[in-house]
Design a protein around this nucleic acid. Sequence first.
RNA 1: GCUCCCUUCGUCUAGAGGCCUAGGACACGGCCCUCUCAAGGCUGUAACACCGGUUCGAAUCCGGUAGGGAGCGCCA
Length: 462
Amino acid sequence: MTTPAVTRFAPSPTGSVHLGNARTALFSYLWARKTGGRFILRIEDTDVERSQRRFRDELIGELEWLRLAWDEGPDVGGPAGPYVQSERGEIYAALFDRLERQGDAYPCYCRPEELEIARKLQRMAGRPPRYPGTCRGLSGAGRRERAASGLRPTLRFAVPSDRLVEFGDLVHGLQRLQTNDIGDFIIRREDGTASFFFCNAVDDALMGVTHVLRGDDHLANTPRQLLVLDALGLRRPDYGHVGLLVGADGAPLSKRHGSTSVQEFRQRGFLGAALLNHLYRLGHTGDLDRWLELAEMPGHFRPEHLGKAPARFDEAQLVHWQKETIARLSPADVGAWLGAGDDPRVAELLRHNVVLPQDAAPWLAVLRGELPPLDAEGRRIVAEAGPGFFAAAGAALGESGADLPRLAKLVAARTGRRGAALYMPLRLALTGRTHGPELAPLLALLGADAARRRLDQYAQDP
RNA sequence: GCUCCCUUCGUCUAGAGGCCUAGGACACGGCCCUCUCAAGGCUGUAACACCGGUUCGAAUCCGGUAGGGAGCGCCA
């Protein structure tokens, strides 16, 4: 029923992948998968100053970690390549040329400092800071003169006046904007590279992208891109502007909110599927509340349920999906994730008591024989049980071995204790804590000898 | 400053004029289960930003107010 959608994720390799970016990547991916279309990865590295190869590698690594596989892009190629903008210079050059010949673009010789001053002046006068059009009316002679004096021009798009730009936004509905509210903007920098408004829009069209999902912050800029596309006779994609991702205080996600990059969450030990499940529900509602495998998300993804309001990233909810994910991990994967060694029994023992790998440390220490000192409640329980209890337990252990049900039965018979009165002192002696993983597998893992030594410690009078 | 966008429980959201004494999920509280924690089951607290209008009837439509955000860059 739906036609295949071609979507894309177009990050710039100027930093780490942000949660907000990851979310739009997810939505774009899901849309393509839902409709049987294609998902494209395009690297927007036209800013030579800030783009770095290591960010590009990192970004690709994070997407792979999240398992958001692209059908076209760097490394895998595709019919509309190259998928790295710094390699598309010739394509852009031809288009710049055409725009200039058509009179839709003109060279601008204004210096950045001059423009800065002009903007300040406009602001002070209560006017919007827009390019005043200084170079727009320059004659051929004027241009030659400036070029001869060594000035290298930028290329500006000549925004037509008195026109209404209209487009139907997938999430916001019909949008209209007066071209008079838009100043002539730069489409080619002084160094010859293409600027965002230009190459982002042009590449979407050239790569056959049908649906662009991006943050709300681009909504007001979309008319500019539409103008470029129209001037070039290129097909407009449909745009959907999703509400931004914000922190707990409602302000845009930033460093002061703690982790904001995918990498940071990954390093802390959050699982990809957990992040995906949380992101999937931020500014979007599927038809199901339960944890979803990435593979089943496309079937439940509902583009019409993409939200306009900003969504807050809430770590408590991430933690919930993390627990759900851990519960579904294979024993081998739990072990690898915990870094708890090769014994699958350890992973099984701890999986329900741990949210992040670091939470396993105290229990691994207990297994190694490093017990924490008892707290007040622990001391109370141990004292209440008395040395005789632990002596009996130690003796019973000699008969039962590291078999908790047998041990418990023997101790119960000899001390008359049952339930918590029986198990809590045992737990305390064995682990030093009142809370923790199931005692039976823990005892089995500990072994009879180690357990015996711990019980004996409490068998003497204090 | 100008233009644009947004506003339902603490959080994510359902809701497209009567189905809403506003539903679900997370978080929080209680009970059950249980040696503890977690999980699970049951259950409770908790929201239509505000003011006007349209209508027999508004969370839903219209206008305004307030608050938040974005854009106006040789950043993307």
